[in-house]
Structure formats: structure tokens, C-alpha cells
Design a protein around this nucleic acid. Sequence first.
DNA 1: ATCCCAACATGAGATAATCTCACCTTATAA
DNA 2: TTATAAGGTGAGATTATCTCATGTTGGGAT
Lengths: 304, 304
Amino acid sequence: MLGLRHLETLDAIREAGSLVEASERLHVTQSALSHQLRDIEGRLGVSLLNRRTRPVRFTVAGERLLALADQVLPLMRQGLRDIRALAEGQSGRLHLAIECHACFQWLMPALDVFREQWPQVELDLSAAFAFAPVPALLRGDLDMVVSSDPVEHEAVLWQPLFSHELVLAVSRNSSLAEREFVEPADLVEETLITYPVERDRLDIFTAFLQPANIEPAAQRKTELTPMMIQLVAAGRGVAALPNWAISEYLDHGLIRSLSLGERGVWRTLYIGIRAEEAEVPYLKEFIQTARQQSMAGLEGIRGA
Amino acid sequence: MLGLRHLETLDAIREAGSLVEASERLHVTQSALSHQLRDIEGRLGVSLLNRRTRPVRFTVAGERLLALADQVLPLMRQGLRDIRALAEGQSGRLHLAIECHACFQWLMPALDVFREQWPQVELDLSAAFAFAPVPALLRGDLDMVVSSDPVEHEAVLWQPLFSHELVLAVSRNSSLAEREFVEPADLVEETLITYPVERDRLDIFTAFLQPANIEPAAQRKTELTPMMIQLVAAGRGVAALPNWAISEYLDHGLIRSLSLGERGVWRTLYIGIRAEEAEVPYLKEFIQTARQQSMAGLEGIRGA
DNA sequence: ATCCCAACATGAGATAATCTCACCTTATAA
DNA sequence: TTATAAGGTGAGATTATCTCATGTTGGGAT
């Protein structure tokens, strides 16, 4: 009934002082404004302005609508500006989940870089161990997932980040310490230390032990990679970790690492986003930053 | 482009949780909302909400528009309420001008009554001696005029208030004091005391002296009716005034009053408003109040 | 697995809102 | 009085929006 157009018209008439000039500013005919005023005055049942004076004179009702226009139009303009910024990717949302515990290592610096470059993007971080990432992406709970298990879906775009070898960390005193690689059967006597997630999401099981139908002697869980390393070093068990995640501990000589099987178990980490957002600038740039940071972390690691 | 309808739609969808229920609330089909969203998302270049969740989930852009709706819609609603009040005559404007100096006498109580009954009406008062009231009415400078000289105009509605006699106030010691009436020629030796306005607006000239081509010996001007009375009582001149304006002074015996000519000069006071506003409730009521107050002021006056 | 249901999307045509065009009326000044 | 500038108005064109009929999709039940 009373629309923004009417407020804009009244505003223009006030600025212009006449229907003719206002119509020029609004790029419509004077007739359009005349009809518009007639309509709205009829609907509201009040006269809004006296067209016979120069400049035109607003009635009390007209003044009230002008006051309304002064309140509403700037809000609308600002709102549209904000939406435009969102549309152009100046601002937006990046809710990121990682399915990979050790990834924090290179993720943190990447996040720091990103936050500085895209301050308007709302950044949020969660672990994706308890839920399936693809539905969460499609649902809009997440905008990006880091995973080594890219579940194919037409609406999800997976982009490889880097490849790494999953290695077995053992104590330097372990009987396995001098081996080049281990076979699944070598673990029947060992305690396996893992992150506390379901078995199906642990590559050591899915890619190494289960195919050989081998079960480790025991399983122990911890969230923290350094704690895992300490337990391994203390001879309390063995752990399967990405090679880059343990490189600094190898350098200290605390532990040793072996390939899983003769050819090793290799994994690739992927970043997944909604396919429709493939061109969102800050997402593209985040992926690039993530690649750089993770590559930097890989430098000098054997086999990487 | 982005209209209030879109904001209302988004608001309804948020409240309802789904397009289907929102469409019911808005009394349109679900299809309409779907098209509407599609259009606006296309125009803005952003997705506003994810329809696949239950309830639907808004994107960052959608949330921004909802925030906009929360700001704008209440303002619009309040604005419309105010306009409705204006339209129904609950509130409005009454800029009143009087062409009649002595009228303040009964006008003041009328204004007091009115202010109490119509507190939302913006009341303003001015004297209409220096300008023509009809153009001012039509221009919107004024909303009501009290005048004894109703200039006919199709867009102006004049309503009679009351009639009174214009009488000549003279000193009780004047040589005219015992006369029933005066002739124009009787004033050639007198000083005429008037309000300080142009001659054409003084009935004593237009209706009495000028037709007889008579000029008083002198003219003296003052704004204040009581001062006029004092000057008359002191024998410094004579003054033409409405009978009701001097009734209390007659009672005190300070002065005497004579008719102007054998039949007297009678005037009628009119209230003029724009014809289009004839039905505005507070104007109608003001006129009624004015009539009552002026009638009350006339009570017990001879010849009234 | 497959079917069903509820919800949303889509295309075409109907409807309504809004504009333009052409011409008329009114106020003001030369 | 006559120009002239500003507004008003009716009819028809345009554009926006809606409805109707139907298609698609995701999730749960059989």
C-alpha cells in the first residue's frame, strides 16, 4: 500500500521543490508522480502536499511521511550496501570444520593470515569428528571442510591440499625401531594410540589393519598430538600420524617412524566447499593460503 | 528493487519457519513466495536462505535483511498509524488568523476549550491584518480565518458566526452623548480612534464615512481595545467598535455608544475554511465552540 | 530398496500495479 | 489577454506479481 517508492518520491519532491524537477531526478514522467501522489493520497485519505505553491508545501501528513522517509530510506540504503558487500564477497561467513586433528598445526597460521586480510568475514572453527561433513556443508552449517575422506557429491567441490604419508610412530627402544616398515601383523602385540573418534574414521584401521583383519592388542585414545608422542616415546604404545605432524619430534630423536606396509599408506587432504561458492573470493583465497601454509609446514620432511 | 514486501516476506518466513506457512500468513500462495525469493536473490546476487532445513536457515545476507526488516517495518507501521490518525481527524493542524481585533475577547476561551479537547491538533494563531486571508487559506498558510469581510471563492467555505452592530463609542461628556445615532457629518470635528490597519479594512470608513464622502478631523491609532476606551472616555476622540466589545465599559458608565446612522451599521463575522476540509472533525467542532463562546459573550447586550 | 509425503521450484498465463503519451486545466506574469 | 510553466487526467502500454498446474527433492515409513 505505502511503498518505498512513495517515500522516495516525496523525498525527491521536497528536494526538487516541484513535481516536474522531481520527476527528472527520478527518471520518470511528471505524470507518473502525479498519479502516484493521487493514488497514495486517495488510499491514505489525506492530502500530502499543496502543489500550487512554489516550492510545493507539504501538509502535516506529508511532513510525517517525509520524516518517515528520512528514517527509512537511509536504513534501506545502508542495508543494500551491506548486501552488495556480501554479494561481492567483501564480507561473508567462513565456518570451517576439520576432520583432521593434526591439521591445527598449519591451520592456525593460515587462519591468522586470513583474519587479517578479510576482517569482514565471520570466521568460525569446529571439529568435524562427530558428524558427516557433506550434509553439514549442504545444510549451510559449514562453509568449508578439511578432510582426507572426500565423499563425492555433485554440489560439493573437493580440492586437494597436499599428500602425505601416514606413518607409525614408535619408541626408539621399540623392537620395531630399526625396521623400514611394518606389516599389519606386527601390531598384534602393540597398544595403538589414536584420536578419540570412531574406528571408521581412522585410516590406520580402514587402510591398514582391517584389510588384513588384524586387531591391535589394545587401543588407547587421546585428543592431543603431543601427548600421543609422549606416550609413544615412553613405550606405552604406537601411533599412526601424518609424517609432517611428527617431524619435529623425529628431529629430537624421541621417536622413530616407519611406513605402514612396504609401499606406505599415503593420504591426500582435501578442502571441500559448496560447488556454487567456488568463485567466492575469500574462499578461493583461503584455500590458497591454506595450501601455502601447509606446504611450508611440509618443507624438509622426508618423503613429502 | 528491494521493496517492503520482500522484507515482510522474509519476516514472515522467519516467524513461520517455512515458505508454506509463511504464505498462509501472508494470504498468498507458496508459489508467490518462491518466485519472490528467487527474484530478489537473483537481483541481489546472494542466497538469502536455505530452504532445505526445517525450519529454514537464513544466510548471512538473509540475516542482514531480517535485521533491516526489524528496523524498517516497525517504523513504517508507526508512520502509517500516525497518518491514519491524521486522516481520521484525530490530529491535524489549525492555523487560525483573525481579521478582527476585538475578537480575542471570545476567542481566548474558545481556544482553551479546543486545546483541551483536541490535544493532538497543532494550534497556531496569527493576526490577518497585513495580508489577504483567502490566498493564505488556499496556499495552506492558514487553515481558518475569522473575518467580517468574506471574500467569495469556490474553494473557501464561509460560515456565519454571529451578527453585531458597529457602534460609535463617545465620551459621556461628548456633545453627541445624548444622541440616539450619529450621521457621518457629525464626525467632521471629531478625532477618530482606530486600530492601526489600512483604511479599506475599517468598516467605519467603508460602510459609513466614505459613502458620504466625509473625513474626520483627525485619526489616531492604537492596537488595544482598552486603551481605545480610555482615550474615548477621556474625550480625546471617538471610536467605532462592535457593540459586544464595549458592553462592559458601557455598564461602568465610562462611555456611551451610538448607532452609526439611523438604521445602524450591522456586520456579520464569518469563519472561513477550505471547502475540502468542511468535514474535518476538529474544524467542525472548533466552529461550534467558537459560536458558543461568542454567543455567550453577546448575552445581555442590547441590540444583539 | 521403493514408495509416499511434505515442501519447494518452475513455466505459463492471469491480474494488478505502474508508467507513458497526449491532452486538459490552472496560476502567474508580461 | 495571452504566453508559459506546472499539474491533473484518461487510455493504453508495460512491468511486476500472483495463481494454477505440475515437476522436483529430501526424508521417513513400509
